[in-house]
Nucleic acid binder design. Structure first.
Length: 596
RNA sequence: GGUCCCGUAGUUCAAUUGGAUAGAACGUCAGAUUCCGGUUCUGAAGGUUGGGGGUUCGAGUCCCUUCGGGAUCACCA
């Protein structure tokens, strides 16, 4: 690595020139910013206390030393306290020739160590997926790709929240008012059908509560005493007691939900290695709670409910089992974590879950630690912010959720309309055209969401996302398709042979170097995205690359360049660029069209 | 009220994890190109990084304080 050589030489320079020891990690090496000349930059401010000279003078002395000791460094310049080093062309040539045909460029090959388990999606089975789930799914899937690219062993897991009061509500509503409707009988997608009954329950329950309030009950009291809710709670209790009739209804309705989810996942292009069911893991959680109770780590209240006292941690008491013995959300999460630890012994257990559950995961970790699970420290909650729409906050209670399937339909239709108007898809079969609409529509959606730092709340603007200009998925796809078009023409027009450019003579102009420099960064970007668990870094990187390439494409000819060797080089540089674009977008789960 | 997160151009987002004159995109205005694919590219305008202190060679980034927005503190998940 040239970087480490430069850093070592810098340390050596300081040692020999100023007789001081500097730690390697204290030497700040960064890529040179665009507006200055050079490839790498060393910040010399920290060294002036050794040199006792001005930053300018210090930088010059170190620069001289490096140039005379490192045969890859051609020259340097100093601006303020910044030492900018320029590498020789032969370095970039070698980099280019070594990597241009390596489709795994930027990736670490071997798996090392324990697996990384990523939980994402984790839907409730009582309603279909919405926009928030989309961000979750895209993040989880992309992270898995990024970690795999970093040579990690990755397990993608999905926890189906298939039990609890919520699904009982859907079940109750369906039993009371469903007239035995099924996905088949209605033609409604399974998860949507269940969602219909969940909404129906909430609506009727509200009506009942309102009536109780009118009769003089306090709101809170009315909510607790609503006969509908009480009935749902009875269902939950029956379910935990394995009442055959309830269990069979539960199985039937959950199966509908799973079919629906499966369709949505396929369409979204995400997948899982393993599914966990809360209905299995809550029992393990109960066992853990029992264990903690026996060891005196947890305590029981008079009504029989079981709690954890977290006051030493500055938190409240936390309920773990209700008085009636049924378990709550965190109970099953304790069990799920234990199960995963037993099965994978993971290096890291990553949960992709919205930031409204930060407290939940904090509590989860504390309780596990109290129970003696030292591996609780490997739990990492990747929390992400809300997704808003231009129309304003979506609020599920107001029924204003943006349904995942509907949104994908909308993106698909917009992609189709735009392609009809602008596309060069003559000769596409119906199937090919449909595939293209899917790729472009989804690419727009995915890119727009993933380019934002996960932690932040964001605004999804469907119109802007699918714009063919600007920092969007389709713009990147377009650039890629255009490169492929150039390549096709190159093969047709002067029978370009992709094995070409091995020993031919070629030299760079500045713009070509600029592109190479950005490509050179790719491996570091992949690594950084893995370390910080942020696909957004990859998204923003690929846009920078595309922008640089488009400037080049605009200003210089590729196929019409008179010098044949230059022409060949530019074709190959374009192909290399295309390869990295495709690779980076692949990490985001976004496909590239050959034509669009 | 306690805890946590977020405040960056009109808007949506960046900023190499403490480094140079805080950058892109959309929109606006002016121009070049109209040729390998819709165009693409260049330039202009737009900022007291919510405000105020502090830490040091250096702060959007770290600390304190204050204001604004959000989340959470459920026998919902």
């Amino acid at each position: 690595m040239i970087e480490s050589t430069i850093v070592e030489n810098t340390a050596k320079a300081i040692n020999e020139l100023y007789d001081a020891e500097v730690k390697i990690q204290d030497i700040g090496l960064q890529k040179t910013r665009k507006e200055f000349n050079g490839d790498f930059t060393i910040v010399v401010f920290p060294f002036i206390r050794y040199s006792k000279k001005t930053p300018q003078k210090t930088a010059e002395e170190i620069g001289d030393f490096i140039v005379s000791h490192d045969e890859i460094v051609e020259k340097y310049n100093v601006i303020k306290g910044f030492l900018n080093l320029t590498l020789k062309d032969k370095f970039w040539k070698k980099f280019f020739l070594d990597n241009k045909n390596n489709s795994a460029f930027g990736f670490t090959k071997h798996f090392d160590g324990k697996p990384y388990v990523i939980e994402y999606s984790s839907p409730n089975t009582n309603k279909p997926l919405h926009l928030g789930h989309i961000r979750n799914n895209l993040l989880g899937f992309s992270l898995a790709q990024v970690l795999t690219a970093n040579g990690k062993k990755v397990e993608k897991v999905n926890l189906l929240n298939d039990r609890g009061i919520h699904i009982c509500k859907s079940m109750l509503a369906w039993e009371m008012w469903g007239n035995n409707e099924t996905p088949d009988s209605t033609g409604i997608k399974g998860d949507h059908l269940i969602g219909k009954y969940y909404v129906m329950f909430e609506k009727r329950n509200n009506e009942v509560v309102n009536k109780l309030v009118q009769r003089g009950l306090a709101q809170e009291e009315a909510e607790k005493e609503s006969p509908l809710l009480l009935e749902a709670q009875r269902l939950l209790k029956k379910w935990e007691n394995k009442d055959a009739k309830i269990v069979s209804l539960w199985k039937k309705m959950n199966a509908w939900a799973y079919e629906g989810f499966s369709d949505t996942y396929d369409r979204l292009g995400v997948s899982f290695d393993k599914f966990y069911h809360e209905s299995d893991t809550y029992l393990i959680g109960k066992k853990l709670v029992q264990e903690g109770l026996e060891q005196g780590i947890l305590f029981e209240k008079e009504d029989g409910s079981i709690w954890a006292d977290l006051s030493n941690e500055g938190l409240d008491e936390k309920l773990l089992l209700r008085a009636d013995g049924t378990s709550v959300y965190i109970t099953q999460d304790l069990g799920t974590a234990q199960l995963r630890h037993d099965e994978y012994d993971p290096e890291q257990l990553i949960y992709v879950v919205g930031n409204e559950q930060i407290y939940h995961f904090e509590v989860l970790k504390i309780i596990l630690k109290k129970l003696g699970r030292t591996w609780a420290g490997n739990i990492y909650h990747l929390s992400y912010g809300m997704v808003d729409l231009p129309e304003g906050r979506m609020k599920s209670r107001e029924g204003k959720v943006v349904d995942a399937d509907d949104l994908m339909d909308e993106m698909y239709n917009t992609a189709m309309a735009m392609t009809m108007e602008l596309g060069k898809i003559d000769g596409f079969s119906g199937q090919e055209a449909e595939k293209l609409y899917r790729i472009v529509g989804l690419g727009a959606l995915k890119y727009f969401i993933l380019k934002v730092d996960p932690q932040k709340n964001m605004l999804f603007n469907p119109e802007e996302s699918i714009d063919f200009n600007g920092n969007t998925g389709p713009f990147i796809q377009y650039t890629y398709a255009r490169i492929q078009s150039v390549l096709r023409k190159a093969v047709e027009e002067f029978s370009y042979n992709p094995a070409g450019l091995i020993n031919i003579d070629f030299s760079f102009i500045q713009k070509e170097r600029d592109i190479l420099r950005i490509i050179y960064e790719y491996p570091a970007i992949v690594q950084q995205a893995g370390e910080t668990l942020s696909p957004a870094l990859v998204a923003n990187y690929v846009y920078d690359l595309v922008k640089e390439y488009n400037q080049f494409y605009h200003d210089f000819s590729i196929l019409r360049e008179e010098d044949h060797n230059t022409s060949i080089f530019r074709i190959e540089l374009s192909v290399f660029t295309g390869m990295v674009i495709k690779s980076a977008m692949g990490l985001l789960g976004i496909e590239m069209p050959e034509r669009m």
